[in-house]
Design a protein around this nucleic acid. Structure first.
Length: 1009
RNA sequence: GCCCGAGUGGUGGAAUGGCAGACACGGCGGACUCAAAAUCCGCUGCCGCAAGGUGUGUGGGUUCGAAUCCCACCUCGGGCACCA
């Protein structure tokens, strides 16, 4: 059903008199007439280039500047994946809203940029191609074509010149260019800003910055210099534990893995594997990505989700000395079992004392740290793991506690560590989560020294400590940490409370505030004071310092898929990466026959980039122009993730054909810089897109990545605002009833009939539920079908009338007739249904009664406010009220007054543009409706002469009084009127009035007893 | 488990401290019609013949006055989930 999206509705030309037989007046606003009007105006808008918004400069500018002399407004939608299934009515909800707002703002005198592109690279497009066995470029292009047709049918006023697709070579050339900017940049720790890597090289060369080895730059070989620079780049290769998804044949970013440990796309299991992958250094920008959220006009829940994802924690890094291998045995002779041991835990056999740095947010609890835990893959583990168990080590500490391990543990710590590492790596994320309640780990046979107590504490490895966070090691304080408490119980480790729990506390770990105990010089201090004191002490002792840590990890950027942007990276014989010179861009994606990803059920399968099969492409002869002449290079075979193209498309809309630049600086500045008065309160803002509308599902993925790229471009001087999206609005979902049969499978919702509340499918009862509209629930409704049955204007109105834009609400085809009838009533006000003649009086010919004029201007004021704030549902309701007021007047007077008619058309135009263009033309107006000024309310007419006010007695409404507006706040007058009202007087009888509350114009409340 | 968001007639929803239910769907009644449809007019939270009472998930509180603010709880939706 939803695959029929390319079907154009049948156009039935209006033949006067043709409908007489079935009783429909020939000039009624029917679906057929709506379709005829809509297709005609859509052609007209294209022919007239109505929605081409001029740039200040370049090919999209106009000779005299045109509307580019006006104040700009940049309205943006989250662009769609051209998925191939076609649109359902839920998709265009946000597009209709932005179109209405853009049209409204055009009428308010702005030069509005509104365009629509396609996010066509990535897994969804590729998987559709895989399913159909067709090359992704072919399916992508045909999907875009049909989606464009579907959207055009809705009358969206986009500037068609600017609608890029991320798969256009002319577009991804610049995606690659941005990649190179990132590759050729580093983050200067002093300023926290991205700088060209050449600046780092200069600093290293003149020794204003030391090299990582401390050796002089001049003493380094060319190869060593490249390695040094590569280690600082904002995009770099790293051997790290990554999310490997054999079912998709690719690695994934943390953001693309669900809480259940499955792929966001396709729901395949994800495994942790140590692989060399490309990573973007987003963590260097964590603080700015967090801090700048405060400047943005975004929904608070979205800001909160980004804050949580970035996960800033303030605390301390503390160094615990630890014995290297050998020393444990030396002191272990009298050590006893781990946890009660008396080993010194210091010193080392090879003469170099080891130290384990931990990160903690609770340095105040250090006296309660009774053991340490390292992540299993922590690099120090091998160095400190003992050869033999200290006497008295419990079997559970020897590794007797995890699956597949001998009950009484392993013979040596090395065996136990090896077995435990194998165990943790062998499990998928799903297994890990399922078992997360059970603490596992092994003792490494070594002891560290608690710098506060000076006592030895045993060192464990356990998978509840993550290598990727903090330092990959913790001091365990079971008394104040629930996880540490659980672990201590399993492993028989001592628990020392260092914060006094409240009296009557019967819980385990106490994480709240309280006085320090068993903590030496901290005793008696509350948590905050104890933290301050211990930090001071740690810094004085040189064993710790303040530290801020983030949950955010660097962004895994490479994918082993075909349908993505190739990296503009080549390798020479050193196997170190070299950026392709920007003059040699684009690096085109080679056409290959077998683009299928190598997928597998086997978690041990290795990623195989499909581009490796493009054998003619994988090596290339190039002269990089650096004096080396033509040489042979190997190409990078990974492609970029889905998110790359969507990180900057809003910039390309600004200057889509620019071959010399990402975007012309003048055009960029015009559209992006925050204009004075652009905020609702009239102030200026930090700039960026003025309104960005999209679903909440991109809260941390797209929106975080795009902000990250934008900040790099800002630092490097390519854009002029620190943030891309000034104002964000999340539209709700359209939900729809879905029906399940007796076996629990979904049935086609379209074929379900409602018989007195009983839902039947094929005569069998089915259960109703509500969910997101889509193919899987078999409840999708195609916009084409609604356009055919009612017209696009009716669909637009209905989607906006359903409720608030930000709320999710259920689709109900039955309700559409309401707004359709509204349009019919408006049409009938203007056009005689029998003759087709215009029914509007000449301007000024008919006097408009005072009540109508007041209602008209109240409506103008209210609709203006509603449209401004995206409250389209109530704006439409007010236009319906105005129409309902006019209907009986017109049927008695016979004609609609011209000034009312024009105002009504103009107010409705943003919502029902084709309908209003048609009426506007029939009113004899030839100037374009799209740029006609929106009506302005006359303040004089907003003031009522007489006011109806409710009268309350003891808070209950007892009657209504009518008073002159000038008297609306005058207590004595109001009271007199209240007493004169019979219904109120009854309740005032015998009442001793204690208090009178007057809300001028709103209410009178008489309180007494 | 923690953090957000939302609970209002038969239905979608309005009202963000001041007349609860705007507007629409559905329902009921009337006009027009031979009739039906369409259209137009009226009624429609619940209880009650009425006067009146009652009512915004539940229970409490603040206030002259609470759907709206505060506290506790319940239900649904979303996010995060061993992040030290």
């Amino acid at each position: 059903m939803v695959n029929e999206q390319v079907d154009e509705p049948a156009i039935v030309p209006p033949v006067p008199g043709a409908d007489v037989d079935d009783g429909v007046p020939p000039h009624r606003y029917t679906a057929a007439l709506a379709n005829e009007i809509e297709l005609r105006w859509q052609d007209h808008w294209d022919d007239e280039r109505t929605f081409w918004s001029p740039n200040p400069t370049g090919p999209l500018s106009e000779p005299n500047g045109g509307r580019a002399r006006l104040q700009k407004l940049y309205v943006l939608d989250m662009f769609p994946y051209p998925s191939g299934i076609g649109l359902h009515v839920g998709h265009p909800l946000g597009y209709i809203a932005t179109d209405i707002w853009a049209r409204f703002k055009r009428m308010r005198g702005f030069n509005v940029l509104h365009a629509m592109g396609y996010d066509a690279f990535g897994l969804p497009a590729e998987q559709f191609a895989v399913q159909t066995g067709t090359h992704p470029r072919i399916t992508t292009e045909s999907n875009i074509a049909s989606m464009k047709a579907q959207l055009r049918r809705l009358g969206l006023g986009h500037d068609q010149r600017r609608g890029i697709s991320t798969t256009d070579v002319g577009y991804y050339r610049w995606t690659q260019w941005i990649f190179l900017q990132i590759f050729n940049a580093w983050c200067d720790p002093e300023s926290g800003r991205a700088r060209p890597i050449a600046e780092l090289e200069a600093q290293l060369a003149d020794a204003t910055r030391p090299t990582s080895s401390g050796r002089a730059w001049s003493a380094l070989s060319p190869l060593e210099r490249r390695i040094e620079l590569d280690a600082h780049r904002l995009v770099y290769r790293s051997e790290m534990p990554v999310n490997w998804c054999p079912g998709l044949g690719t690695v994934l970013a943390n953001e693309e893995v669900t809480a259940e440990g499955r792929s966001d796309r396709g729901n395949f299991p994800v495994y942790q594997r140590l692989l060399k992958q490309w990573v973007m250094r987003i963590t260097s920008f964590a603080d700015r990505l967090l801090g700048d959220l405060d400047e943005l006009d975004w929904p608070e829940p979205i800001k909160l989700m980004q804050r949580n994802w970035i996960g800033r924690s303030e605390g301390a890094e503390i160094v615990f000395p630890v014995a290297a291998r050998g020393a444990a045995e030396a002191s272990g002779a009298d050590a006893g079992a781990a946890g009660t041991g008396t080993g010194t835990g210091t010193g080392s056999v090879d003469g170099a004392p080891r130290a384990i740095a931990v990160f903690t947010t609770r340095p105040d609890t250090i006296f309660g740290a009774t053991y340490m835990v390292l992540a299993p893959e922590h690099p120090l583990v091998d160095e400190i793991t003992a050869d033999a168990w200290p006497p008295g080590t419990l079997s559970v500490q020897r590794g007797g506690g995890f699956a597949g391990s001998p009950v009484d543990g392993h013979r040596t710590p090395r065996d136990a560590v090896a077995a435990y590492r194998a165990y943790t790596l062998g499990r998928s994320e799903i297994d890990r989560q399922a078992e997360s309640k059970l603490k596992t780990g092994v003792f490494v046979g070594a002891f560290a020294t608690n710098p506060a107590t000076g006592g030895p504490i045993p060192v464990f490895i356990a998978d509840y400590v993550l290598m990727g966070y903090g330092t990959g090691a913790i001091m365990a304080v079971p008394g104040q940490d629930e996880r540490d408490w659980e672990f201590a119980e399993v492993f028989g480790l001592p628990i020392v409370r260092s914060v006094e729990p409240p009296t009557g506390w019967d819980g385990a770990a106490f994480t709240g505030d309280g006085p320090a105990v068993n903590s030496g010089f901290l005793d008696g201090l509350r948590v905050d004071a104890a933290k301050a004191r211990v930090l001071h002490w740690l810094e004085a002792e040189g064993v710790g310092s303040r530290r801020v840590t983030y949950k955010l990890r660097d962004w895994l950027f490479s994918r082993q898929r075909y349908w993505g942007e190739p990296f503009p990276i080549i390798y020479d014989e050193t196997a170190l990466p070299i950026g392709v010179p920007t003059s040699m861009l684009p690096v085109e994606l080679p056409a290959i026959d077998d683009f299928m990803p190598k997928t597998s059920d086997d978690p041990d399968a290795l990623p195989e980039p499909p581009l490796a099969r493009a054998t003619a492409w994988t090596t290339v002869e190039l002269d990089l122009g650096e004096g080396d002449g033509v040489r042979t290079y190997r190409r990078e075979l990974n492609t970029m993730p889905q998110w790359a193209g969507s990180c900057w498309y809003y910039l390309r809309y600004l200057d889509p054909d620019n071959a010399d630049d990402l975007v012309d600086p003048a055009n960029e500045a015009y559209w992006m810089v925050g204009a004075t008065g652009s905020q609702p309160d009239g102030s200026s803002n930090i700039g960026g897109v003025d309104l960005y509308v999209g679903g909440v599902e991109h809260a941390v993925l797209h929106l975080l990545y795009a902000r990250f790229w934008h900040k790099i471009l800002f630092d490097l001087g390519h854009v002029s605002t620190p943030e891309p999206f000034q104002r964000l609005f999340n539209q709700g979902y359209i939900q729809a009833a879905a029906f399940t049969d007796g076996r629990g499978s979904y049935v086609d919702a379209e074929k379900v009939v409602d018989q007195q509340g009983q839902f039947l499918y094929d005569g069998e009862p089915v259960n109703r539920e509500f969910g997101k509209m889509g193919k899987s629930l078999k409840n999708a409704v195609a916009p084409d079908q609604i356009c055919r049955d009612y017209g696009a204007d009716t669909l637009r109105l209905y989607e906006m009338y359903m409720g608030r834009l930000e709320q999710s609400k259920p689709w109900n085809t039955r309700d559409i007739v309401g707004v359709h009838r509204f349009l019919q009533r408006v049409w009938r006000l203007f056009v005689d249904e029998q003759t087709g003649e215009l029914n509007v009086g000449a301007s000024g010919a008919k006097a408009v009664d005072a009540a109508t004029m007041r209602l008209l201007h109240k409506t103008i004021a209210a609709v203006t406010d509603d449209l401004e704030d995206l409250r389209f549902n109530t704006a439409i309701a007010k236009l319906i009220e105005l129409t309902n007021h006019l209907t009986p007047i017109v049927s008695t007077v016979g004609q609609l007054p011209a000034e009312v008619a024009e105002a009504l058309v103009l107010m409705l135009a943003p919502m029902a543009p084709h309908f209003c263009e048609e009426l506007w033309a029939r009113l004899g107006r030839s100037e374009p409706l799209a740029f006609h000024a929106f009506p302005v309310a006359d303040p004089v007419l907003l003031v009522e002469d007489l006011l109806e006010m409710p009268v309350q007695v003891n808070g209950k409404v007892r009657g209504q009084i009518t008073v002159a507006a000038s008297q609306a706040g005058h207590e004595a007058t109001l009271l007199a009127a209240a007493h004169a009202n019979d219904r109120v007087a009854v309740h005032l009888e015998g009442l001793v009035v204690r208090k009178v509350i007057v809300v001028p114009g709103r209410l009178l409340n008489i309180v007494g007893g």
